[in-house]
Design a protein around this nucleic acid. Structure first.
Length: 461
RNA sequence: GCCGGGAUAGGGUAGUGGUUAUCCUGAGGGACUGUGGAUCCCUCGAGCUGGGUUCGAAUCCCGGUCCCGGCCCCA
């Protein structure tokens, strides 16, 4: 009986690992060109880091345990919180903005299915220290560039929480939470009915989220004007919703338990984040995206359900991925104060690396190393030759004690394109035999000539 | 947590109660002593797991594990 992998985990064979490496490298190249710097954080953290950010309910989906010192430890379920923790403790006084990126595995105790595993990889970026339209546009354009670099065609949907939060400032908080949830869940009928029940039809929310693209923006501008008028007239204290409150967990059971909420509700009750009209900011951002040449759909239905997002939010979808088609999510948020730092806006995103791997198509294939074939009587010399050639190309040589014929046979089975043959004749003449395994042609060349000839064909990546 | 479909050598498979479990591929060894995947020979290697029904179970029934797809959820 062999030992199995734990549920929801995967082994990556050499080919898989190579493919993942290629994709990762292509996307990292883009990040580096945009001036982002890689960081890494621990695989496990104090459980508290994640419950502070997302509420106690997340513990249900976290791999957590008590260590031998009695500490509550969690395998990280995401990377934003660790990155922000690191920023608060190490980088608060560094020049802003900070452009950072990360790649690493995360763990969630969930039911595995297509594009969803218990250990999965995220590649993400954070631009910390600004909330201007410029930051948001840069980050979205960066995500777009990364996906394009690996040939993925994706739909980018961008929303703006400033407007919706402002609209919702007119209704009590519990209702706000319920409404956000219904928008996020795309429960249109329920939303319509609920807004009717509480007499909030006049907000025009359903109309707004039904529109996509340019029309959505026009509608938003219209609603924004109405909103200003209404506010002026009634002198409603907009600050009620605009105040940044750093109150941590909302432990009010009345709110947590109020139907029809569950799950994310606790996350939303964590805190209030600044809400402002600022629709012109969003418009500027859209114009900048245009300059970047990014094709995005304006979609106010994107609310990302999380209380700490404050400005632009976005999600990216890939069509042929079935039910788990979202490959990227991000936005502008304020998390620093939760971890004890001065409040700072950041914009960032996380890419679901495994889902991307399901849809990328790689044109290149991995090169099989050159095989050095030798007659057993010159093994010592062959090893010295191998050592030299390895400066130029990846190369393997027999360790199975095979004779020349068997070595060639093995090289053919191995899929080698080139074989270098070393025997007494070659050593005496000073020229080695280079055999092209496809054509069967052989030529006599010096070690240097072989190295030069093959180097270009076996560039290690 | 819920619903559906699965699980037979390393990979791919056949087999609806009957005793040595099918075939392909693969891997290792040998023949072959300085030139190819051929051929020949030998070897290795399997019914997820635990119960039950039965004279007898890969096959039928139940539990569990894992995989695939869909819900719930997705910080």
């Amino acid at each position: 009986m062999t030992i199995q992998r734990p549920r929801g985990t995967r082994d990556f064979l050499p080919d898989d690992t190579w493919r993942r490496g290629q994709v990762r490298k292509a996307m990292k190249d883009v990040l580096e060109r945009w001036g982002y710097q890689e960081i890494s954080t621990p695989t496990f953290e104090h459980l508290e880091l994640f419950t502070i950010k997302s509420g106690e309910s997340v513990t249900e989906e976290i791999y957590s345990f008590k260590d031998k010192g009695g500490r509550d430890i969690a395998l990280r379920p995401e990377l934003t919180a660790p990155v922000m923790r690191m920023y608060v403790s190490e980088l608060q006084n560094a020049p802003k903005p900070q452009r950072l990126y990360y790649y690493g595995s995360c763990f969630r105790y969930e039911r595995p299915q297509r594009g969803r595993f218990r250990e999965f990889w995220q590649l993400g970026a954070e631009l910390i220290g600004g909330n201007k339209p410029d930051s948001e546009a840069e980050v979205i354009a960066l995500a777009d560039g990364m996906l394009k670099s690996v040939g993925i065609k994706a739909d980018i949907h961008i929303g703006y929480l400033g407007l919706i939060r402002s609209m919702l400032s007119k209704v009590p908080q519990e209702q706000r939470i319920a409404i956000m949830r219904m928008i996020d869940k795309k429960e249109r009928e329920n939303l319509q009915a609920y807004l009717g029940d509480i007499g909030a039809d006049y907000l025009g929310l359903v109309e707004l989220i039904d529109l996509k693209g340019r029309f959505a923006l026009d509608k938003a501008l219209e609603l924004s004007r109405d909103l200003e008028k209404a506010t002026d007239a009634s002198k409603l204290p907009v600050e009620q919703a605009s105040t940044v409150s750093t109150t941590s967990l909302g432990n009010d059971p009345g709110i947590l338990d109020s139907p029809p909420l569950s799950g994310r509700a606790s996350a939303r009750t964590c805190r209030e984040v600044a809400a402002e009209y600022g629709l012109e900011k969003f418009q500027k951002m859209v114009d900048l995206l245009d300059a970047y040449g990014v094709d995005a759909t304006i979609d106010f239905e994107i609310v990302r359900g999380l209380e700490y997002y404050s400005g632009t939010v976005f999600e990216i979808y890939a069509s042929d991925l079935g039910s788990q088609k979202q490959i990227c999510g991000g936005g502008t948020y304020e998390l620093c104060s939760l971890f004890g730092g001065a409040e700072t806006s950041s914009t960032g995103f996380g890419l679901g690396f495994d889902r991307i791997m399901e849809i990328v198509e790689l044109e290149s294939k991995r090169k099989v190393p050159v095989v050095l074939v030798f007659t057993p009587d010159v093994k010592q010399e062959a090893i010295k030759v191998a050592k030299e050639l390895r400066n130029a190309v990846p190369l393997v040589l027999d360790v199975m004690g095979r004779g020349l014929g068997a070595q060639l046979k093995a090289a053919a089975g191995f899929g080698a394109e080139h074989v270098v043959i070393v025997g007494r004749n070659e050593l005496d003449s000073g020229k080695l035999t280079l055999r092209d395994m496809k054509s069967g042609e052989q030529e006599s060349l010096t070690l240097g000539e072989i190295a030069e000839k093959l180097a270009g064909k076996y560039q290690c990546t």
